[in-house]
């Protein structure tokens, strides 16, 4: 474990807590894409298949349970909670996210660390996470006024993978034979997808203006 990875995990945890705070306290999911939440639940479900077979550390298992529990409960909240589901605008959240799943699955069948069910599912989860934010970014472009919690949620979600890139650089230089092209390339693509969001988020913070993404 290094400071970059710990900071990355804490930033990821913070993004989940901000979203849960928004949904649980103000009972609203305005501006949140259910499709991105569904993709993230699938990411964790396929990445943490080893949660009961391989024990890494208490920290690792605890964080996996938190991410699994929070992602599925957020999907449940937006779909089924009588008040929260009313603030979900289905007509705006139109990205065909199923079109993301098939190519990621095909790519995972071709490019993986070992051709076993668990490893193909793990590679699938890495590729899917790289593109899981797309429905949310598309929705943000359509959302006239993005509320602060939503903006902070997306920012933290993007920042966590950027911190993981620093972690991979650190581990490359400090551990022998630490090379993981699958996570490196996917993590870079994932972070680059946030580039324009980061730009407008920073601009709105610097000029103290409302966050607005150009359509």
């Amino acid at each position: 474990m290094n400071i970059f990875r710990l900071a990355g995990d804490m930033t990821h945890l913070a993004s989940v807590l901000v979203l849960l705070l928004k949904i649980h306290t103000i009972k609203s999911c305005a501006g949140i894409s259910l499709k991105t939440q569904e993709l993230y639940a699938l990411v964790f479900a396929t990445r943490y298949l080893d949660i009961f077979t391989d024990f890494i550390s208490l920290y690792n298992t605890t964080m996996k349970l938190i991410f699994l529990g929070s992602s599925f409960s957020i999907v449940w909240y937006i779909r089924n909670h009588k008040i929260v589901s009313r603030s979900y605008d289905k007509s705006q959240d139109t990205f065909r996210h199923y079109f993301l799943i098939i190519p990621c699955l095909l790519l995972a069948l071709l490019v993986n660390e070992k051709f076993t069910f668990k490893e193909v599912m793990w590679a699938f989860s890495i590729y899917l996470e790289a593109v899981a934010i797309l429905p949310q970014l598309v929705l943000l472009q359509r959302t006239r006024n993005i509320d602060n919690l939503t903006g902070q949620y997306v920012f933290l979600l993007g920042a966590y993978r950027a911190l993981y890139i620093l972690n991979w650089i650190y581990r490359y230089f400090t551990e022998t034979h630490y090379v993981h092209w699958i996570t490196w390339v996917s993590g870079l693509v994932q972070t680059l997808l946030y580039a324009d969001f980061f730009y407008y988020y920073f601009e709105s913070w610097k000029n103290n203006k409302k966050l607005q993404l150009p359509a």
């Binding site: 990875r5 995990d9 990821h12 990445r47 080893d50 077979t53 391989d54 890494i56 690792n60 964080m63 996996k64 991410f67 660390e113 070992k114 076993t116 668990k118 490893e119 793990w122 993981y164 972690n167 996570t183």
Partner: peptide, 10 residues
């Protein structure tokens, strides 16, 4: 288990 890559990151 041997041979199976161990993913220690979340």
């Amino acid at each position: 288990p041997l041979g199976e890559p161990m993913h220690d990151e979340l």
